[in-house]
Nucleic acid binder design. Structure first.
Length: 804
RNA sequence: GCCGGAGUGGUGGAAUUGGCAGACACAAGGGACUUAAAAUCCCUCGCCCUCAAAAGCGUAUCGGUUCGAGUCCGAUCUCCGGCACCA
């Protein structure tokens, strides 16, 4: 069969007959199946795209044949850094390269033969889309969920530009090798932390992989503890967050983050030079390095002291880079006797180490002793357990107005400003008279200008574009400036699933009534690398829009599946620099889209992925050939209507077992085993074909079932086979086969017989045998003395274990 | 470093979630058909010992729980994803 010819033939027919057009009238029976959209950085689809989209389409077709009205859209996450970097290197405008790449990828996606309804396509870089991304920003602003504050960026002093983390290689700029510094800039943030608790709690509602939920849980990082207020020798006070208030009497020092605003004031004249040097050095080290637990804990004395509110003791204040300004209060207390890190720090800086906890059960408790225990040397709290003391001490602090109970989250607010060109402009205006003014919704979109110098030179590219920057103030009509930054592309992808069902709406981002019927997404499919960021941001947007009254659901993605990564043939992640990127184009040219898709489904575990190796393609080709021979034979021969004999019973068992297993496997995205089951079915039919001359009509039913079962996996091929069987178009309007439980019941079951957990024999016994009968038969089979048997374990349908 | 995964024949991968390890394939070897080749069909295929059978050993490493462990627990090693400006 010429696969390319039939692929073209059926794609044309599907298009002409509008087979996959989403029928809005059937929304009550919808399944919204969504794959994470493509990022058009490369010019062409690679093997990984196919691995995401091919099997997902098999799932979508399976659901369609089960009678659901499937909504499966496709689009492009088109803003982003790579297009801009490519432009800086080649001079090709990001818009031109992006739109060209999209056109190429659309063509390739159409060749997959997926059920995408292209009427619903979206591209985030067109004004019709980013107008609404800007609208989202304005809504968050109006509801107090967007604010500005200073935050550090990676700054290359030589290129005079802000660098993304990925552009900083071991602390230096990837372009020029200059040491990168952290520098503060005023930037926009979204207040995702307002939703920390709900984002954590609602994880329980989701049908997501446990590991993904665990990662989000740890990312949100809830910790229950308290705050303690310390007065300082300079008069200013600060608070520390701690989960170990029980150790408060043992505080030997406190540590403040180098970026903390109080550092300057706390530093005494004698210490000024040392602290300044320390802060400069800290600005060169990235956060991952700073938090590394096996790195030496450096620090520098500020010269000031803080007073412990519970015992009045004065302790030194240090600056140290292992404390981050962004977590907690940016100041921590050091309890040398009861924390590993603090113990090492105190030893190094000759600070006091005082025990305030001993083990509750008298077990050895050398310092540092980090477990809970019983308090000693702690005034009125001495003798309490750690848990009691935490409660009592925080209560006391509350009474003293020096702190109290506090829950902290590791989650930080989301920084959305980017000093880049290729993104959605931030719809804010700065007027000398009126200050910061949001762009009125009627004036959206704020167009991204085409003619801009986007080469790095000290400022956001848009800042150099006068026609963009200069505007009139929407409030007073006077001259004003626009915000020169663009939005993080994660903002675009945090709401795209809401736009898909209503992509041409030019009055609003989506029609609420309609979107509340179409969402949540029933099945979301994409890489595990998005576990913490994209998936958390999308959940935050959904909850925020719900609270604004636009949505009636709490979670965007009810069920989530991660596909694995297809690695290069060398076992490493595919990358241009490594030169191991595999293009699927040659394989598709040779074998066709269906064989390629089934190959991906069969030869990899969908969840795991693995290294590319195309030796399996020939195997799938042979599998298809065997099916074609079966179908050809099926409509050439005649059948007899006869009662089921042994061969028919066996064939019918395989048929129904296949239906059951394939359906189960598709629900769990176990495509490899589903294809294996189809192979077993084909093998079973071949055995029957050879064994039986006068074929039962069952054989014909089996062939028809096979074509239907195969259809989601190999859509063009199955459509062609369906036509060969002289059946009416289309196989996708058929119901997916349903298994008959009666056909799966076998009269006799084989048990493995173990003696002391080692297999010694086998036993075939009627399925209706009782537990006692099975025990009896097993002992008889072994020929052992019943008196020497200690115990018999029967696992129904599996094995018998006789303990002697 | 921290968080989350993974490690099973020569290879890709299965294993009803604590119950017969290696389904289904690939590769390899042998055979049938053929003048020959291709295609197709049949057989063998974890290791060790053996003519063969049986026994024994086997799921990264070491230890544990259990009648029974690839699966659970503890430790170790290696690899992968993420770590907030790649998306």
């Amino acid at each position: 069969m010429d696969m390319k010819e039939i692929e073209a033939k059926w794609q044309k027919k599907w298009e002409e007959t509008g087979l996959y057009k989403f029928n809005k009238a059937k929304v009550d029976n919808k399944k919204y199946v969504l794959e994470m959209f493509s990022y058009p950085s490369g010019a062409r689809l690679h093997a990984g795209h196919w691995f995401n989209y091919g099997p997902s389409d098999t799932y979508a077709r399976f659901k369609r044949m089960q009678g659901y009205e499937v909504f499966q859209p496709m689009g492009f996450d088109a803003f982003g850094l790579p297009a801009e970097n490519y432009a800086i290197k080649t001079g090709i405008h990001p818009q031109d390269s992006t739109l060209k790449n999209i056109a190429t990828m659309e063509g390739q996606l159409k060749r997959i033969g997926a059920t995408y309804d292209w009427d619903y396509e979206i591209k985030t870089c067109v004004p019709e889309y980013y107008k609404w991304t800007q609208w989202m920003f304005l809504q968050l602003y109006k509801h107090g969920l967007a604010y500005r504050k200073n935050a550090p960026v990676n700054w290359c002093p030589s290129c005079e530009t802000v660098l993304a983390n990925e552009q900083v290689i071991q602390g230096v700029c990837e372009r020029c090798g200059t040491q990168v510094l952290r520098k503060d800039m005023t930037q926009w943030f979204f207040k995702i932390t307002d939703y920390a608790e709900e984002l954590l709690q609602d994880l329980d509602k989701l049908d997501w992989p446990e590991k993904t939920k665990m990662m989000q849980k740890n990312w949100i990082g809830k910790s229950i503890g308290g705050e303690v207020e310390f007065e300082t020798t300079i008069g200013e006070s600060f608070r520390v967050f701690t989960t170990r208030a029980d150790t408060l009497f043992g505080v030997s020092y406190v540590v403040i983050a180098p970026e903390h605003p109080l550092v300057d004031k706390l530093t005494t004249p004698e210490q000024k030079a040392a602290v300044k040097k320390y802060i400069e050095d800290a600005a060169k080290i990235d956060e991952i390095e700073r938090l590394s637990t096996n790195r030496e804990k450096t620090g520098c004395f500020t010269g000031s002291y803080a007073t412990n509110p519970v015992n009045g003791r004065q302790v030194p204040i240090y600056v140290a880079d292992y404390v981050l300004a962004s977590y907690g209060t940016g100041v921590v207390m050091g309890v040398a006797a009861h924390d590993d890190r603090d113990y090492i720090f105190a030893q190094k800086h000759n600070l006091s180490i005082e025990r305030v906890i001993k083990s509750a059960d008298g077990s050895p408790d050398e310092l540092p002793f980090t477990d809970d225990g019983v308090l000693v040397n702690s005034g009125e709290f001495t003798g309490m357990t750690s848990a009691q003391a935490r409660d009592a001490i925080l209560t006391k602090l509350q009474e003293m107005n020096k702190g109290g109970f506090k829950t902290n989250y590791r989650l930080r607010d989301w920084l959305v400003s980017r000093q880049r060109y290729w993104g959605a402009p931030i719809p804010m205006v700065y007027c000398d008279k009126c200050g910061m003014v949001p762009v009125p919704e009627k004036d959206l979109p704020v167009h991204l200008p085409y003619n801009v110098e986007f080469k790095p030179s000290g400022e956001s590219p848009l800042k150099k574009c006068d026609e963009f920057m200069n505007c009139t103030c929407p409030q007073c009509g006077g001259p004003a400036k626009r915000d020169p930054d663009t939005l993080d592309t994660f903002v675009c992808s945090s709401w795209y699933f809401l736009r898909y069902p209503d992509p041409k709406n030019d009055k609003e981002p989506f029609n609420s009534e309609w979107i509340n019927k179409m969402l949540p997404v029933d099945k979301y499919i994409g890489g595990a690398e998005h576990a913490c960021m994209h998936l958390l941001y999308a959940r935050f947007f959904t909850k925020a829009l719900r609270d604004m009254g636009y949505l009636k659901f709490d979670e965007p993605f009810l069920s989530l599946v991660h596909q694995g990564t297809i690695l290069g043939p060398d076992g490493f992640k595919m990358s241009k620099s490594r030169g191991n990127v595999v293009s699927p184009d040659d394989s598709i040219q040779k074998y066709g889209a269906d064989i390629f898709r089934v190959y991906l489904e069969f030869c990899f575990s969908y969840i795991e992925g693995g290294p590319w190796n195309e030796s399996g393609l020939d195997a799938i080709q042979r599998f298809f050939d065997r099916i074609e021979r079966l179908v050809t034979k099926c409509y050439e021969i005649s059948y007899v209507d006869k009662p089921f004999g042994k061969d028919e019973k066996e064939l019918n068992f395989v048929r129904n077992n296949t239906i059951k297993m394939v359906s189960q496997d598709l629900e769990t995205f176990s495509f490899n085993t589903a294809v294996a089951r189809l192979m077993e079915f084909v093998n079973g039919m071949m055995v029957y074909d050879q064994a039986v001359k006068e074929k039962s009509v069952l054989f014909k039913d089996c062939v028809e079932d096979l074509v239907k079962l195969l259809a989601p996996f190999a859509p063009h091929f199955a459509e062609e086979l369906w036509e060969m069987l002289k059946k009416p178009y289309s196989v996708f309007n058929q119901s997916y086969p349903v298994f008959d439980p009666a056909a799966l019941v076998r009269d006799e079951i084989e048990y493995a017989i173990q003696v002391n957990s080692k297999i010694r024999s086998r036993l075939v016994i009627s399925k209706s045998a009782s537990k006692e009968e099975i025990e009896e038969a097993a002992i008889k089979e072994l020929g052992v003395d019943k008196a020497s048997v200690k115990k018999v374990i029967v696992v129904p349908g599996r094995l018998v274990n006789v303990i002697m």
